[in-house]
């Protein structure tokens, strides 16, 4: 559901703060510092980082490939391994049966059971490939606007956190209050008025 999709979902942000000059160097450094790393052959179950919009499976930012003048375009990639609970259960039951058979043991403590489960999850995690989810980012530094192509709460939280770590700039989500606050042409008095608003009631029915 990215920029070029036939149907997109977008959350808009205001970038708070001034990016360090030279702009392209700072952006390249920030993207490289937190680019996605592969977790397919290790036991990590989740990772998240920046990747290239043009080729999201190869996080290459060389040659300012993220510049679509005047926009900066890249993607957030969140890779997650999801092991079906029934697969874990199947291996868990088999392992317990094997232990009982080998050791002539008829009881396992809660600690031993947890240890077996953790070992199975770690072992499966090494073998199961991560599923990538890709969310596009369009950033227009000249007016401090940024669009993030997902309304998923978890993805939005990741982009806000990673953007701050990468560029030392905060993302302010444009929801009704912040969008009004940052709109041009409002005096301080009007902004105070915004802070003092209370809900209107359009109800026309008489309360019993």
């Amino acid at each position: 559901m990215g920029i070029l999709s036939s149907s997109a979902s977008v959350v808009r942000y205001r970038v708070k703060g001034k990016i360090k000059e030279p702009l392209l160097n700072t952006i390249t450094q920030g993207l490289n510092k937190h680019r996605i790393h592969e977790i397919d052959n290790n036991s990590e179950d989740k990772t998240c980082g920046w990747t290239s919009f043009k080729n999201p499976y190869l996080a290459d930012f060389s040659g300012s490939s993220f510049v679509f003048d005047p926009y900066i375009v890249f993607s957030l990639r969140i890779d997650k391994k999801s092991i079906p609970s029934k697969t874990i259960q199947k291996q868990y039951v088999a392992e317990i049966a094997r232990r009982f058979a080998n050791k002539d043991q008829s009881y396992l403590s809660r600690y031993e059971k947890k240890e077996i489960k953790d070992q199975i999850i770690a072992s499966l995690g090494m073998r199961i490939p991560a599923t990538p989810n890709i969310y596009d980012v369009v950033w227009l530094p000249e007016n401090s606007n940024l669009w993030f192509f997902s309304t998923l709460k978890s993805a939005n939280e990741e982009v806000e956190s990673l953007f701050l770590k990468s560029f030392s700039l905060s993302l302010i989500r444009l929801f009704p209050y912040t969008q009004a606050y940052y709109m041009e042409g409002f005096s301080d008095r009007e902004k105070d008025g915004l802070n003092n608003l209370s809900a209107s009631n359009f109800s026309t029915s008489q309360k019993k």
């Binding site: 977008v10 043009k54 969008q179």
Partner: peptide, 25 residues
């Protein structure tokens, strides 16, 4: 949230080559 979902714009041509991507975006 003022978030926009199911945003559909007028149809655009799909990029045929890598060089077309920038224009399409």
């Amino acid at each position: 949230s003022l978030g926009m979902t199911n945003l559909k714009t007028p149809a655009t041509g799909r990029p045929e080559t890598a060089d077309d991507i920038e224009g399409a975006v």
